[in-house]
């Protein structure tokens, strides 16, 4: 027992190898490999069309890659994510995993109140006490700085920034072990972005979240990511500790990115 748990602690939360996905003849992502360790935040940056969303979709099981391996360390040991049955994968998606979409409309139920949106994941895993569900939803609205008096309002009555914070609350309420985020600050005003980033950083630290975050924005990764992966034309051109990559980029493309010559 002791031996097994020691080994488990020594394994990455997510191990990715040779992940490749093309759309007909066009490369989506190619030969991507990395390890994500528990409590780590991995940033994925690259210009538009470099394959960030494709990679994230393949990792989260929204899309089937053409080849490659994705191994997730579940509570009961490592599992090859790509060979999971659909029921198993969907169960994982509503328990251990969370996915924050760029557009909050894709990640929220717009016809359901804020409290119902946050409570859905709790009910999906069997919560059957209304008072407790509501209390937890209310607590989470507070944690993402939404006035708890808005608990019965629908997200359509919320600003873009509030909707995104609600989507985050809805995802984090069950304490997921791995969070995927695709451009969570995209499409928001600069000041709203800053507040959201601040909030995310606080939550990541408090909860010790393991996160894979895709973004155009180097400021986002500088603030949030422990490690960084730079993609170009579907391939990883450079990866390492965030500060190292940003302060001393090795690949010519990363150097362009960092010097902001490229409009990303």
């Amino acid at each position: 027992m002791t031996l097994i748990s020691t080994i488990a602690a020594d394994r990455p939360l997510l191990h990715v190898d040779n992940l490749t996905k093309s759309y007909g003849g066009r490369v989506g992502c190619a030969d991507v490999g990395f390890d994500l360790w528990p409590g780590e935040v991995l940033g994925i940056v690259g210009e538009s069309g470099s394959g960030k969303s494709t990679l994230l979709s393949c990792l989260a099981g929204h899309m089937a890659p053409d080849q490659g391996t994705v191994v997730f360390e579940t509570a009961s040991g490592p599992r090859d994510v790509l060979s999971l049955s659909e029921p198993e994968r969907r169960r994982l998606a509503r328990t251990d995993w969370a996915y924050v979409h760029q557009n909050p409309r894709d990640g929220l139920r717009m016809g359901v109140s804020a409290g119902g949106n946050v409570g859905e994941r709790l009910m999906a895993v069997g919560a059957r006490h209304y008072g407790q569900i509501r209390e937890k939803a209310s607590d989470w609205l507070g944690r993402v700085e939404i006035d708890t008096g808005r608990i019965d309002d629908r997200p359509s009555a919320f600003s873009g920034g509030m909707q995104q914070r609600l989507q985050i609350a809805r995802n984090l309420v069950t304490g997921p072990r791995l969070v995927f985020m695709d451009e969570p600050t995209g499409g928001l005003d600069v000041s709203v972005q800053a507040r959201l980033l601040d909030l995310l950083r606080g939550l990541v630290r408090q909860m010790g979240l393991s996160v894979i975050i895709v973004t155009h924005d180097l400021a986002v990764v500088r603030l949030l990511a422990d490690r960084l992966m730079v993609m170009k034309s579907g391939r990883v051109v450079e990866q390492g500790l965030t500060d190292q990559v940003l302060d001393d980029p090795q690949h010519a493309y990363t150097q362009l990115l960092v010097s902001s010559v490229l409009q990303v």
Binding site: R94, G115, G116, G119, E120, R121, I133
Partner: peptide, 18 residues
Amino acid sequence: ELEEYGLMHVKLYEDIAR
């Protein structure tokens, strides 16, 4: 098929909330 019925309770939750 997968017995994912959490949504049914979301409907009842909304009822009580409203």
